[in-house]
Amino acid sequence: MTNSLDLPKAPADTRVVVAMSGGVDSSVTAAILKAEGYDVVGITLQLYDGGAQPRRAGACCAGQDIADARRTAEIIGIPHYVLDYEQRFRESVIDPFAASYLAGETPVPCIACNQTVKFRDLLATARDLGADALATGHYILSRPNGAHRSLHRPADLDRDQSYFLYGTTQEQLDFLRFPLGPLPKSETREIARLHGLEVAAKPDSQDICFVANGRYSDVIAKLRPEANEPGDIRHLDGRHLGRHDGIMGFTVGQRRGLGVASGEPLYVVAIEAATRTVRVGPREALATRRLALRDVNWLGDAPLAPGSGQEVFVKVRSTRPPAPAVLRMTPDGEVEVELSGAESGVSPGQACVVYDGEGAGARVFGGGVIARTSLTEALASVAA
């Protein structure tokens, strides 16, 4: 006989650590588990101190969030602890983010945060506290799968956070629980109201806790002053169009703020970090159909192996629905994705997440970081 978390214990004998960010989702997660009789312990991570710097509305981990998490814990009657993870966060998330950005990539820092600080370091702390599980307020499903658990898209696809959680390892997944996976957001807020939680109407976090004003470039300039080194802006056809003050001010797909005059609409199509060159071109140049992945995390039942290719669905952006693709591993062990339809503005550093379907409940097979696209390969061959 198992409890609602698929653990062979009575709820009262099951300790669950809940990662409490101070938002409505993690607060409701704690409230649901407490109401079901679990031994719940709330933990809030202090990840980044923005000081007196003004913050963008909706940014997570602001100073008020710790107070909100503490107040929620008081209302539902659970112990609550705040852990200083600032140094870990700096080393595992902020520094790699800056390095990736300077390499001309478009990194997704909240993926790294989930992979490291939250699901590696906090999970280890939860085990130290004698927990049987670590629960979070993410909108994603996990289900028993033989001796392990599998990861799936949630019921509320508008809130699907699988793109940010593909890097969860099998060992982590077996210990994690996601009580909000079956719920729509509207029901989550209603549960918060029923429990008298003051965060019931709190705006959603944007998962950019170390970017106070919403501008990545300001953070990069502070961490890596060399990012301000100027370089050329060149058309794909080789024309020199102008100069820029640093590649940190550009991302693939950007149209506004290029600082060059042209008779056609131009977009950033590639950033060549080695020469500090920003390549621009027409919108159609942004289209790509082939990706090469690195740092692949695979959650399928059978390991990836060289072969003819596996029909899957993939996401290359968190806001896009999964699209058909073919996944294959080359004889030398590299994972490639062939998209059925071209995707626009895909950049190295972004994630490509792999599914077995496209709807609610589709299984997450894992994914990886985009190392190259067909466009970056073509530019590299020209440069060579």
Rank of each mutant, 00 (worst) to 15 (best):
M1Y: 12
L5R: 06
P11E: 09
T14I: 07
R15K: 14
V17S: 05
S21D: 03
G22Y: 00
G23A: 07
S26P: 03
S26M: 02
V28H: 04
V28T: 06
V28L: 05
E36L: 14
I43T: 05
I43Q: 02
Y48S: 10
G51W: 07
G58T: 06
G58Y: 09
C60R: 07
G63A: 15
D68V: 01
R71D: 13
R71V: 02
T72P: 00
E86D: 04
R88K: 12
E91A: 15
S92K: 13
V93G: 03
P96Q: 06
F97E: 00
A99R: 15
L102H: 02
A103H: 07
G104E: 00
T106H: 05
C110P: 01
I111E: 03
A112E: 11
L122F: 12
A126V: 07
R127W: 14
L129W: 14
G130C: 11
A131M: 12
H138K: 06
R143L: 13
P144A: 09
S150N: 11
L151S: 10
L151C: 11
H152A: 08
D156C: 12
L157E: 05
R159L: 12
R159I: 09
Y166F: 15
T169R: 14
L173G: 04
D174A: 12
F175G: 03
L176H: 02
P179T: 01
G181Y: 03
P182R: 10
P184M: 12
R189S: 08
R193Y: 11
H195I: 03
H195D: 06
G196V: 09
E198C: 07
E198P: 08
K202P: 05
D204G: 15
S205Y: 00
V211T: 13
N213I: 09
N213E: 15
N213V: 13
S217R: 14
I220K: 01
K222R: 15
L223H: 11
R224H: 10
R224C: 10
N228I: 04
G231N: 02
I233A: 01
I233F: 00
R234S: 02
H235G: 04
L236Y: 05
D237Q: 07
H240F: 12
G242Y: 04
G242H: 01
I247D: 00
M248A: 13
F250N: 00
T251I: 11
G253I: 02
L258E: 01
G263V: 08
A273S: 15
A274P: 08
G281L: 06
R283Y: 13
E284H: 11
L286Q: 03
R290C: 09
D301T: 12
G307Q: 10
Q310V: 13
V312G: 01
V314Q: 04
K315G: 08
T319Q: 15
R320H: 15
P322A: 14
R328Q: 15
M329S: 06
P331R: 05
G333N: 10
E334R: 15
E336R: 14
A342Q: 11
A342V: 09
S344G: 08
S347E: 04
S347G: 04
S347I: 04
P348S: 09
G349L: 03
G349E: 05
Y355R: 06
Y355V: 02
R363V: 08
V364R: 06
V364A: 07
V364G: 04
V364K: 05
F365A: 14
F365P: 04
F365W: 15
G366V: 07
G366C: 10
A378P: 06
A378S: 11
S381E: 12
